[in-house]
Structures are given as C-alpha cells and as structure tokens.
Design a protein around this nucleic acid. Structure first.
Lengths: 236, 236
DNA sequence: CGCATGATTGAAGTACGTCAACTCTTGTGG
DNA sequence: CCACAAGAGTTGACGTACTTCAATCATGCG
C-alpha cells in the first residue's frame, strides 16, 4: 500500500498518490484531483482536537503524529504517519484527535468535497480510498492489542518491526530504521513511560538485538530475536 | 446513531436500520436492500479471524463481541455490539478479528456486493454507512486511550458510562445497565485481569457508586462520582 | 562555549498481576 | 426435590514489573 517514491512528479503527471489514483482511473476524462502543497515546520499543529476536518492529508515527506489528550494532561499518541500515508477519513466531521508535525514535513491537502466528486466518477479511486480506511483500521486494532495485552518489551519490539516492515515494503533492504520522534512520543504511543522505553531499548542493545549510532537511528542486528520478542517476552 | 426500536417492522417497511436507510433514500425507485436474518446461540462464532468478510452485520437483538488472539492465547476484545449496531467495513476483505455471540443474538446479514450496488444509487445510504465507520473509529480511539493511559478504576468507570450513555441515547431514563458478558470478557476488553475487574467493581459498590442485584446487572447510584472516576482516579 | 532539552541510568515505591482459596450460581440427574 | 458438580465470580496474600522520583549524561542550538 505504500509506494516507494510518492514525490516523483514528471511532466503531465499529477503529484501525489491520491491524485495519481484518480488520474489513472480517469485517463480519458482527465478528471482533476489536485492537492494543495503545504510545508510544516517541526512541532507545528495541522489540526487541533475538535477542529472541523475539511481535508484529507497525504504525507509527501517527513513524519506526523496524531494524538489525544486527557483532562489532566496525559496523552495518547494514536499513530505516526510517514511518506505515502494518507490521514483522515474521506468525509467531513469534527476531528477526534490533533495532528502535529514531528519533523519538518510536506503534505498535500485534498479538499474532501473535491475528493468526493472525483470518487463519484472513479470506482478505482473509491476502492483505493477504502483500502486506506481498511489499512488504517487494521493498524489501529494491532495497536489496541499492543496496548491491552502486550508487555513493554513486546510492544517496543512490535513498534520497531512496524517501522522495519514498512521500509521493506518500500523496497529498502538495509536493517536501519529511523525514529524521528522523541522517547516521550514513543512512550505516549506505547502506553508506557519514557524511562521504560529507554530501559527496553537499552536491554535490546545489551542483548545485541539492536544497535544505534544516535537516539533517532536504530539498526537491527538480530531480526529473528526481535520477531520472537514481539510475540512473547517470556524468555526475557 | 442508535435507534430505539430497530426491530419495529410494520407492513411495507423493510426490516433493519440499513434497509430503512436505503428505503427512505430511494422511495421512488424502491431499490431493495434486504438483510438475511440469522439467529445465533450464546457462544457461537459468526466469523473467525482471517475469514473472508462477505457481509455487513446489523445486530437486531442480543450482544456480540469482536476479539483477536495472540499466539500464546492472550486475548484482546476489540468491542461489544448491541441492538442497532452495525459491524464490518463496507467492503470485502480478510477479517482481522473474530465475531462471537455473547448471548442469544439475532442479526441481519447484508451482502456487501448488494450494499455497494444500493450505495451507488443512494447518497443518503452512503452517508449513513460512512457515519457508521466514523462512529466505529471514534469508539476505537477512545478505547485506545483507555488501554494506553487510564488506570483500572478509570477504565471500568468509562466502560460502565459507555453502556449507560448508550441507554440514555436510546431513550431509557433509568440507571440500570445490563452487562451480558462475563468478567473475563470485560477484563479482555479492558486489558486487565478478571480479578482486577472484580476488585474495582467491589470498590465502586463499597463506595456506594454502584450496586447490583446480580453480576450481570448494575445500577448506578452516584453518576457524578462515576463520571469523575472515569476522568481521574487520583482521589481514590 | 554554555545552556536547554532530551536521553539514560539508578533507587525506591506501589499498583496490578499471580496464585490460591472460597463462595455463589446454575443446571442436572439420582 | 435435593445433592452434587461445574463454572463463574469474589476475596485474600504475596510478588514483581512497571512507575516515580532523582541524578547524570548526551546532544544540539544560539
């Protein structure tokens, strides 16, 4: 579902995955779906909780996180999104989470009204949008299992594998994963404290399962062990 | 989004919420969307994990749960669904969870292919289906926050309030909530053990926040306290 | 270079899980 | 109709895995 080079844009070809999906599906009618490009600096908020959602966002480059706050400040990060990911359901509503840029990020904003118009003409685009909704829900359910039933080591191992597998899907063959977000972001995503996240990562390093040049770049040394760790942490 | 009497079915009126939505939207064309009725005994499985999803289900009466298993038998219950609820995304795919009847249950099964055909003709039905997807996702996100960032007392209080609020939405004015599922089901939903669920419920009883005639029927005595408890358990 | 912020490690406390006993319910068959 | 069994629910005692609090160590930016 993730496409290797979403930024590729040669003459005559619309920019962005959604636009491309609409373009291919309507090559005869040349029905236009054009996203407005926006550049976001690190930490800036794209959408606050409760804001009216008028656009679907496609990440061109960078990373964003979606999150929700409790009254006393506790935070749950719902998800992280990178290049090629689509954020937002394909209809207007009050957002149930905020969307923030983790790094400097470029996004394409598709007005939902326009998206609907084109979807009405293009079953292929409709299908593609549905597949995004589907992927999104599957990711959310896996995340719920991590939060509800996995131990910290299993959660972090699953988290690292998610990033690794995404890179594999995108055609990269190395064992390096980039974690642009802070330890606090990771802990708020995993339902843990930042200290526990650190300790688990240190544990993986001590066990030579991973190594890291700096805190935002992790190299997997022992993939089978990491995969076992994601399933069960019984053998510590 | 919950309608009080989904079983109401007078002459000439199609049965079920989805069918009604399609009917109203197409009163001139009389486009048919008919669900096949199925009766399920307590504990029976409607859908296993990985099964191909060919239908969207509407609960007429009873309660069902969706859940997913880990390799070593740990279980996460994703959600509980009662009368008027719709289960399943409006397109075919391999299910990412199993669907089981918690009590004797009656459901209406709408073939997804037929649903799509009617959706193509009826923007109102499409809108209604989207609103179901939207509600479903909002519930899932709230659940993720419970699992990731709430303490057991807050989780259980939120859980009870969900059931209470649903009853209020359906027009009931009493403070009684029915919990047809077992304590183990609740614990697998909340990411806790059954013992912790019991202890928290006992704590609420000792505090005269709730009372119960039997283990499946709970009466809220102190709604404000329960609502406070769902936000924060600091004052024990 | 120096400060601010983030990451890591250590020590100590506690909330929740585990294990186990007991009770209450429900249903079945003598 | 009661006796008993099987299962679900509840409570208690205890251990520990994670959090909390605190100090130290990197990193990066002005």
């Amino acid at each position: 579902m993730n496409i290797a080079s979403p930024t590729s844009n040669y003459f005559g070809q619309p920019e962005g995955i959604l636009a491309s999906a609409a373009h291919v599906a309507n090559s005869k009618q040349m029905l236009a779906l054009t996203g407005i490009k926006r550049k976001l600096s690190k930490g800036s908020t794209i959408l606050h909780e409760e804001d009216d959602v008028k656009h679907v966002y496609e990440i061109v480059s960078g990373t964003v996180k979606t999150s929700k706050l409790l009254a006393d400040g506790r935070r749950q990060v719902i998800g992280f999104f990178g290049a090629g990911d689509i954020i937002g359901l394909p209809f207007e509503f009050a957002s149930f989470y905020s969307v923030e840029a983790v790094t400097q990020t470029t996004i394409l904003c598709y007005p939902i009204s326009q998206l609907h118009a084109v979807m009405g003409q293009s079953p292929e685009l409709t299908k593609f949008v549905f597949s995004c909704v589907h992927n999104e829900q599957e990711k959310q359910i896996d995340h719920m299992i991590s939060l509800g039933r996995k131990r910290p080591k299993e959660r972090i191992a699953s988290f690292l594998l998610d990033f690794y597998n995404k890179r594999v899907d995108m055609g990269f063959a190395d064992q390096v994963i980039e974690l642009p977000m802070s330890r606090v972001d990771i802990s708020d995503y995993m339902g843990l404290t930042q200290e526990t996240v650190c300790r688990v990562l240190s544990f993986f390093k001590r066990r030579a399962i991973i190594t890291s040049r700096n805190s935002h770049e992790i190299t997997i040394l022992d993939l089978p062990s990491l995969e076992r760790m994601a399933q069960s942490s019984v053998l510590h």
